[in-house]
Amino acid sequence: MRVLILVENLPVPFDRRVWQEACALRDGGHEVTVICPQMRGYTQAEEVLEGIQIYRHWISGEAGSLGGFITEYASALWGEFGCAVKAWRRGGFDVIHLCNPPDLLFLVALPFKLLGGVKVIFDVHDLWPEMFEAKFGRRGLLYWAVRLAERCTLALADVVIATNRSVLGAVKQRGRLRDDQAYVVRTAPSRMNTAASPDETLRAGRKHLVGYVGVMGNADGVDYLVHAAEHIVKTRGRSDVQFLLMGSGPEHADLLALRDRLGLTDFISMPGRVSDEFLCRALRTIDLGVACDPINAYNDHCTMNKVLEYMAFGRPMVMFGTVEGRYSAGESAVYVMENSAEKLGDAILALLDDDARREKLGAAGHERLTRELNWERSVEQLLAAYQAA
């Protein structure tokens, strides 16, 4: 089949899930094209990478406000539709694969389904209504517009895939989907160099290194980790812990300012977006990883990539006890069951001071990822979803 994948919030190959899906479909004998935004250093408008055609479009920027979201999504839809028309003229496609958020991509798919008979697969990365409420803390007219967009996308889709059973259960109920229309395709790292050499210079001369990798937006809770570091250094009086926070996003500049305002510049390194090589060295070096996404209705449904990446490298974790976070990490993490920076900091210190427990948790996470949550199982489900479509 000829497959067109649309993703709005990250470019490929930076978006690991989408790129792994594209490569799996290519390996399964399909012809794959991806449309994504020009951002995060990926600005080439067209390229063929590993046998996959990529079109990238201009986008207004990563939004941090309601007005910013409207501008971002409007520019994205315009760019996606233009690229989709280009792909259609150059060879066409049989399936259009929509990766949310947002749930507005059905507007791009609609004419191709109605006029060209193209099948639609809806790849639910996040529950967009819950994400909207978590970002803005309220329900209003726009919230219900978001709910309507979700229902329209579900109605248009021939098959739905989701990152976990929690998300799948929600969309099955909302879209009144049959079992043969819905599949779980979990995200799991498959191409990371887990044998990379550690880089002890990242410790900045301190005994312990605590790591974070991921997006830095207003729903990701990185401010909790910065305040947890303040608690560790200033309240608990510990000068032997270095923090390495890797990633970028709309809150990165504000988090840098918060770090400096709290007098933690020497204790928290924030290099922004890092290369895969740097990331793998860092994950081999850290003593533990942190998932500080706060407990709420949105994060309870999310499988965080960072959790699975820590597990791939056999690193123990401290995390807020979101529902899907606890399911993914299993016995490999210490869970903080309320959104408290102080309790997060105390849990980090307790695990740093217990070498045997860190080793046990890290081994449990690696075992769980290898045996139960590996990407090969997800590929089977992905290909089954395409067969159903």
Rank of each mutant, 00 (worst) to 15 (best):
G92Y: 02
F14W: 13
I54L: 07
L104E: 06
V7T: 15
V108A: 06
L104F: 10
P13Q: 03
D15F: 00
K119R: 15
Q20K: 07
E8F: 04
L115H: 07
P102E: 03
G64V: 08
A74L: 15
M39S: 14
L49H: 09
A63S: 15
L77I: 10
E62I: 14
L104Q: 08
C99Y: 04
N9R: 11
I54V: 11
R89N: 11
V124K: 04
G116Y: 06
N9A: 11
A87Q: 00
R56T: 09
L4P: 00
G79N: 12
R56I: 07
G92V: 02
A22H: 04
D27E: 13
M39C: 10
R56E: 00
L6W: 00
A24Q: 03
Q44C: 05
R56K: 08
H30S: 08
V124L: 05
Q38Y: 15
D103W: 08
L6R: 00
P37H: 11
R90D: 11
R26F: 13
V7I: 14
V95T: 12
R17A: 09
I96R: 10
K113R: 14
I5Q: 06
P101L: 12
L98K: 05
L10R: 06
N9S: 14
L6I: 05
S60N: 13
V32F: 07
H97G: 03
G92C: 07
Q38M: 14
F106G: 06
H97Y: 07
L104H: 03
L98N: 01
R56G: 01
V32L: 06
R40C: 09
I52G: 04
A63P: 15
F93D: 02
F81L: 14
E21C: 04
E46Q: 13
R17Y: 07
L98R: 02
L104R: 05
R16P: 01
L66Q: 15
F106N: 02
Y55T: 06
F112N: 09
G64Q: 12
S65D: 13
V48T: 13
F69P: 02
G28K: 01
N100Y: 07
P111K: 11
Y55D: 06
I54G: 00
Y73I: 14
G91Q: 04
V124F: 08
R17I: 12
V34H: 01
A109T: 08
H97E: 02
T43Y: 13
M39E: 12
V48R: 04
L107T: 07
L107Q: 13
L104C: 03
T71I: 11
A63N: 15
M1I: 10
D126M: 11
D123K: 00
V95S: 04
N9W: 08
C36P: 12
F93W: 03
E21F: 03
N9F: 11
Y55E: 11
P101M: 06
E72I: 05
E46M: 12
